[in-house]
């Protein structure tokens, strides 16, 4: 009798325990956005795409001056030229993307069922190049960042719409990105969340730490400290170095998954890229 009860109990409890450990992106999203909305009640959801400017008047004033002559305008123009330039085989980037690549940046990173991997926009651009006989470009800056800047500009204002399909590989990638985001690493022992959740909105020296909510929405972006336009991956590399950890490879699964998780957390917020930051 006792044994039967134990068996019954364990049968009943097992699916529950499993359910608790299953990734639940939709619930995470609600909790994540809710956390920031509750913590900073004066900042409306859509305003998070403006990152640090919600938290510092002096930075906001500087920004307003800067975007009168947006420093990323050249990147967008160069990116459009590159985007429209034919490959040796006569095709263009438009042939690789739905809707000719216009107004689709908000759907990236995208899970690719064929390879079982996450494909951020930069990787998709490189895939298009390789498929058309061209060499891969650097995923951090330069021509690829310019193309990304142009493509993102055609999605300006569209709500971010990253999908985690009911595919165990997609869920695993999402979960890996989440774990990377919250895991401390490097000699300084910081996680992404240490600065961009826990200390979000506070000052690290003179700089405001941007909340993770909205953070991906304005990439690629012009950073004054870079002096040019860079991608989200470039920022990942910079952050890893800042916590005194060796960065991952630009096209690593770790960074793809991290971008997947972070961008999913921004679902519903408007694309505001390319952006400008101090």
């Amino acid at each position: 009798m006792k044994l039967a009860l134990i068996v019954l109990a364990s049968l009943w409890a097992a699916p529950l325990a499993q359910a608790a450990s299953q990734p639940d992106p939709a619930a995470d999203l609600q909790g994540f956005q809710g956390y920031f909305l509750k913590r900073f009640p004066k900042v409306p959801l859509a305003a998070y795409v403006n990152g640090p400017y919600n938290f510092s008047k002096s930075e906001r004033d500087q920004w307003k001056q800067i975007i009168e002559f947006p420093p990323y305008a050249f990147a967008v123009a160069d990116g459009k030229t590159l985007f429209d330039t034919k490959f040796a085989n006569g095709k263009t980037y438009a042939s690789c993307f739905p809707n000719g690549g216009i107004g689709i940046a908000q759907t990236y990173p995208m899970f690719d069922a064929k390879t079982g991997r996450v494909v951020p926009l930069g990787v998709a651009i490189n895939r298009c190049r390789v498929a058309n006989g061209a060499a891969k470009l650097s995923l951090t800056t330069g021509k690829l960042a310019d193309i990304e800047a142009y493509m993102t500009s055609t999605s300006d204002g569209k709500p971010i719409d990253v999908v985690v399909p009911h595919d165990p590989r997609a869920l695993a990638a999402y979960q890996a990105g989440k774990e990377y985001f919250y895991s401390r690493r490097g000699q300084l022992n910081f996680s992404c969340a240490s600065c961009h959740v826990q200390a979000a909105g506070m000052h690290l020296r003179g700089d405001v730490l941007a909340p993770a909510l909205g953070l991906t929405a304005s990439f690629p972006l012009y950073r004054s400290s870079w002096g040019d336009v860079g991608t989200l991956v470039r920022r990942f590399i910079g952050c890893n170095k800042k916590v005194k950890a060796e960065p991952e490879a630009a096209d690593s699964t770790a960074y793809r998954d991290l971008a997947y998780f972070m961008t999913y957390m921004n679902n519903g917020l408007p694309i505001a890229g390319p952006g400008a930051r101090p």
Binding site: G31, K178, Y182, S183, R184, Q187, S191, A193, V197, A245
Partner: peptide
């Protein structure tokens, strides 16, 4: 010694990261 410290950190984080997650 430094590599061992980072390995120790990474091992610990496999259990600890959930404490930082916001829900």
């Amino acid at each position: 010694a430094l590599a061992s410290l980072s390995v120790e950190q990474a091992k610990a984080q496999r259990a600890l990261w959930v404490n930082e997650a916001v829900h």
